[in-house]
Design a protein around this nucleic acid. Sequence first.
DNA 1: TAGATTGTTAATCGATTAACAATC
DNA 2: TAGATTGTTAATCGATTAACAATC
Lengths: 206, 206
Amino acid sequence: MNKSVSEAVIKRLPKYYKHLKELEISGLTKVSSGKLAEMLNITASQVRQDFCNFGGFGQQGYGYDVGRLRTEIANILGLNRTYNMIIIGAGNIGRALASYKGFVNEGFSIMALFDVVTNDKRVTDNIPLYPMEELENYVNNNQVDIAIIATQRESAQEVANRLSELGVTNYWNFAPVELKLDNKCIVENVYLSESLNVLSYRMNNN
Amino acid sequence: MNKSVSEAVIKRLPKYYKHLKELEISGLTKVSSGKLAEMLNITASQVRQDFCNFGGFGQQGYGYDVGRLRTEIANILGLNRTYNMIIIGAGNIGRALASYKGFVNEGFSIMALFDVVTNDKRVTDNIPLYPMEELENYVNNNQVDIAIIATQRESAQEVANRLSELGVTNYWNFAPVELKLDNKCIVENVYLSESLNVLSYRMNNN
DNA sequence: TAGATTGTTAATCGATTAACAATC
DNA sequence: TAGATTGTTAATCGATTAACAATC
């Protein structure tokens, strides 16, 4: 099993998962590597190789059972459990993520928002907004699986350090910096401006 | 010159650019491939190979001139001009992007927001919010370089079709669907839930 | 049984890394 | 001149693709 699954494969897993959910909703119960390949715009070979990394979930001559495959991939992705998340930074992005309903369905719940300024900002939906001073107290008394860093670039590292000392190891980072944390920490970055720059690159080089 | 630059290289360009800006701010005027490699966490060879794709901007025995290199990469990325953007969908993400100040510095300005519901929502900062019926009229009378799709999943494709018919060819898509548009269109996707799923994968497989 | 389609090995392709002559 | 460092070619590594025996 997963002794170093390549980055490329990992990035495709959520795509498989998404398409399998769609297939399941549309009532299909079986799917072939060829069909999945078409949906993801890759080759059937690659689909089979990808699943082979995890043992292979198909049946020769038949294909893959949609429900089974979806469950297997959900397990691989860790979607068979729930995650408590907090957001640091109640600015535009922080509040947008807080009120976005899409994550909860997949087991990711946002428990609290933190910001230096708490007065002029409303609590978003039913999620409480705490001042930064409350961070230590909150984390010590609540399970925090993932911290979402949605602060200004300047304070992101400092906030991550504080969280790291409190034992938080998993970060979804929206600040345009590379967080330097010790090796046991896991950081997944969303660098919006890089994405926008790639778009403008393509606009000028196609 | 750029006869098929690989995806991997393209994705690194914004990172080079970001670090070069930092170097410039910190007052450094020269930088070596080794130094840049260290900043990006790659090898010096790779840095030189990357720049070689575009002709090479260095000087043997010296290194790269920070200002020159930054300008060259800015040109490659198309950052030597401005872009007029509109946002379709004034929900959480749409409004967050509208009020985010970071893009304007790089020449990306948000000119208008569109949504089916315009009454109960305030105009964000100074950006006007129009009803969807105004879309055709607006696009026909204003330069729109990039459309940001921030609608619900369900309406994203339909909105993109409308824009495409109006001649808009460049899309920054935040809806969790793959937009199907003709080949001359350029779509750059930001799939937040895929990023979150990769995070949970790593949390469960490290 | 015949047809379909997997899992997996082998071949190919492309990206990364190493090496080094060129030269500032 | 000697040291540093590029641009670029060659070697290596890893990912994708092709092929096919196994088998449902």
